[in-house]
Design a protein around this nucleic acid. Structure first.
Length: 268
DNA sequence: ATTGAGACCTGTCGGC
DNA sequence: TGCCGACAGGTCTCAA
């Protein structure tokens, strides 16, 4: 989502919305009342991100909150508008900017979300309000991670997907970070903390690996460098572990209904 | 309060 | 080629 924010920023920040097409009445949830009227005529003052949520602060004082779900994406069409373009059947929302650019929200599975919120009350948003620390911020470190996992009986990887523990880590990067930290996805989350909740070495390794993995993902997206690129363990079932000298074979197992990829040799 | 299972949708891919 | 089930990068709700 951070790379999406960066791609959209030059087209949205400081730009005025002159029209908004809603091509269906809802995504996962119904659009807010008078949604179009509350967008049109307003300028995007700032484009921010919190975890996997995109936050467009409007001149009206409201914030447009967007989640891409599993299959959502934005398409930017710079002016002039492509003649005769019909668009895709899953183009659900089209923002027409004063510049002539169009910003199209496409989401086949419609797990995405678009709502309007009073920024002062954003903490009341059922999900945004409960998010844990941003993984790339100074607030997120080994101590914070250990504190959040201290009393958890759940498996470590399941804990990493809990957005209250760390905000914005998804299924792919949870596997990637655990591999980077050489930690088993199946150990109890509480094992990275001491009996008093202090961080163990494993908590330091994991916090560092989470930052490394996410920062690298953002860098790669910025360089449009991900074509053909794959992950270190995710989606590599049956292949050799890429850690130098490890020699293990990547396994896959289901945890809490999600696929976990890991190397049983170097992750303990 | 925590946890797991199922639900929400559509598309794609592999196997027959 | 067509049909079928399994699976997909994320939440949300409900029941135990």
């Amino acid at each position: 989502m951070e790379s999406v924010r960066r791609a959209l920023d030059p087209w949205l920040t400081g730009a005025r919305i002159v029209d908004a097409e809603l091509r269906r009445p809802d995504l996962r949830l119904p659009f807010p009342p008078r949604f179009r009227a509350r967008l049109v005529g307003h300028t995007v003052r700032a484009l921010r991100r919190r975890a996997k949520y995109l936050l467009a602060e409007l001149s009206s004082g409201e914030t447009l909150v967007v989640h891409l779900g599993m299959s959502g994406s934005f398409r930017i069409d710079p002016p002039p508008p492509a003649a005769g373009a019909t668009g895709d059947k899953h183009d659900h929302v089209v923002l027409h900017m004063e510049s002539g650019a169009t910003i199209t929200f496409n989401d086949p599975r419609r797990f995405g979300q678009m709502v309007l919120a009073d920024p002062v009350q954003l903490h009341l948003h059922p999900a945004v309000g409960r998010l844990g620390p941003e993984p790339l911020s100074d607030a997120f470190d080994a101590a914070a991670l250990a504190r959040a996992c201290w009393k958890k009986r759940a498996a470590l990887k399941v804990a990493l997907l809990d957005q209250r523990v760390v905000a914005g880590l998804g299924n792919i990067y949870a596997s990637e970070a655990l591999h980077g930290a050489r930690l088993s996805p199946f150990r109890r989350a509480s094992t990275i903390a001491t009996a008093s909740g202090a961080p163990r070495r494993s908590a330091h390794a994991l916090a560092r690996a989470i930052k490394t993995v996410l920062a690298a993902a953002i860098d790669r997206a910025a360089m449009a460098d991900y074509r053909g690129r794959r992950f270190r363990v995710y989606d590599r079932e049956g292949e050799r572990c890429l850690r130098r000298g490890c020699g293990g074979v990547v396994k896959r197992r289901s945890q809490a209904g999600r696929s976990t990829f890991y190397c049983p040799v170097c992750q303990r």
